[in-house]
Computed example of a mutant assay.
Amino acid sequence: MVIGATGQIGRPVVGALVRDGWEVTAASRGGGRDGAWPDEVRAVRLDREDDTALAAVAGDGCDLVVDIVAHGARHARQLTSLAGRVGSAVVISSVSVYEDDKGRGFDTQAEPGGFPEYPVPIPETQRTVAPGESTYSTKKVALEQELLAAGDRLPTTVLRAGAVYGPHCRMPRELYFVKRNLDGRGRRVLAYGGGSRFHPVSVHTLAELIRLAAARPGSRVLNACDDEAPTVAEIAAAIDAVMGVETETVLADGPPPAPSVGDTPWSVAAPVVCDMSAARRELGDRPVARYAETLPETVEWIERRLAGRDWREAYPEMFGAYGDLFDYAAEDAWLGTK
């Protein structure tokens, strides 16, 4: 059973599991299905918050539950209540659970001096924020701890995902450069000298990790990122190459030189790069997706969604999270001083 099957991660996960011989029930709020799934995939409607409905979909039992949308202790307890009827689980968490040795994490990054300075790369043994119900990160830690504590009853692989990319994303970071290219912007500004690194993960990488974990049940937590962590300048150049454009890049040392100028969704004051050696060691993971090679499907998806629409209508969650990513007047004013 795949919970959250019609999201950007769930779609390729269902396909990967089917190809590996699993009989898959694809559960989602809408009960829909992806056109690429074979007919034998069983699509069902499921309200993730309904304990009775979740138990009903699990039925008399299933060998594997993949939960892509779980967060918080309550969702963990939903899953552990199925112990005895479920063979094992794979659950998606996030690299946002980590904090540095000064207690800084993703929840403090907006504070002055609050951006964390992690080791490079970050191992799974790096400390995490305290569990709680106040933020996305604290809920993910609560989820992890509940599941790992019940590992003897329900073996669960927790995958800490990086910056997810691929089609069907509601908040695609690539939008930042795709729209600029579509709008004919010949120059762009990159803060931190274009050297920011925020480890991405393709939906295909996640599907492969889930496929491997499904075949090797265990109680563990693993980073889940691509094999490479390109800089934001490299990401921008890769998107240009896909779209067949050339853009002049103006590098600004340090943080964004003015509000909304050079502040991409990848722009971070210190690198966020994860160690993938444990996944290779425990699951036999190998690279299946490289950023530049998998970009065309992401760019195409964004272009189709933007066609004839205001970007804020096409991606309301993106606007809510980042504000106006395309303040060209502010960029031009700053560039005019160069």
Rank of each mutant, 00 (worst) to 15 (best):
Ala110Val: 10
Ala110His: 15
Ala110Glu: 14
Ala110Lys: 15
Ala110Pro: 01
Ala110Gly: 12
Pro112Cys: 14
Gly113Tyr: 02
Gly113Asn: 04
Gly114Phe: 00
Gly114Cys: 04
Phe115Cys: 08
Phe115Arg: 12
Pro116Gly: 08
Pro116Cys: 10
Pro116Ala: 14
Glu117Phe: 05
Glu117Arg: 15
Pro119Ser: 11
Pro119Cys: 11
Val120Glu: 15
Pro121Met: 12
Ile122Pro: 04
Pro123Phe: 10
Pro123Gly: 13
Glu124Asp: 12
Gln126Ile: 09
Gln126Arg: 08
Arg127Asn: 03
Arg127Tyr: 04
Arg127Pro: 06
Thr128Cys: 11
Thr128Gln: 11
Thr128Arg: 13
Thr128Asp: 03
Val129Lys: 07
Ala130Ile: 03
Ala130Thr: 08
Pro131Gln: 08
Pro131Cys: 06
Glu133Cys: 03
Thr135Ala: 01
Ser137Asn: 05
Ser137Gly: 01
Thr138Val: 03
Thr138Trp: 00
Thr138Ala: 13
Thr138His: 08
Lys139Pro: 00
Lys139Glu: 14
Lys140Phe: 00
Lys140Arg: 04
Val141Lys: 00
Val141Tyr: 00
Ala142Arg: 03
Ala142Pro: 00
Ala142Tyr: 02
Leu143Asp: 01
Leu143Phe: 01
Leu143Gln: 05
Glu144Val: 00
Gln145Gly: 00
Glu146Val: 09
Glu146Thr: 03
Glu146Pro: 00
Leu147Phe: 02
Leu147Trp: 01
Leu148Cys: 02
Leu148His: 03
Ala149Tyr: 02
Ala149Lys: 04
Ala149His: 01
Ala150Asn: 07
Ala150Cys: 02
Asp152Met: 01
Asp152Leu: 00
Arg153Ala: 13
Arg153Val: 08
Arg153Cys: 01
Arg153Gly: 04
Arg153Glu: 13
Arg153Asn: 05
Leu154Asn: 04
Leu154His: 07
Leu154Cys: 03
Leu154Ala: 05
Leu154Arg: 05
Thr157Ala: 15
Thr157Glu: 12
Val158Ile: 15
Val158Phe: 12
Val158Ser: 06
Leu159Cys: 06
Arg160Asp: 08
Ala161Cys: 14
Ala161Trp: 06
Ala163Met: 13
Tyr165Ile: 03
Tyr165Arg: 09
Tyr165Pro: 01
Gly166Lys: 09
Pro167Ser: 09
His168Gly: 02
Arg170His: 11
Arg170Thr: 14
Arg170Trp: 10
Arg170Lys: 09
Met171Ser: 07
Pro172Leu: 12
Pro172Ile: 11
Pro172Gly: 12
Pro172Phe: 09
Arg173Trp: 14
Leu175Ala: 05
Tyr176Gln: 09
Phe177Ala: 14
Val178Thr: 12
Val178Arg: 10
Lys179His: 08
Lys179Asn: 07
Arg180Lys: 11
Arg180Cys: 07
Arg180Gly: 10
Asp183Arg: 06
Gly184Gln: 02
Arg185His: 10
Arg185Trp: 07
Gly186Arg: 15
Gly186Phe: 01
Gly186Tyr: 02
Arg187Asp: 13
Arg188Val: 15
Arg188Cys: 13
Val189Glu: 04
Val189Lys: 07
Leu190His: 03
Leu190Asn: 05
Ala191Asn: 04
Ala191Asp: 05
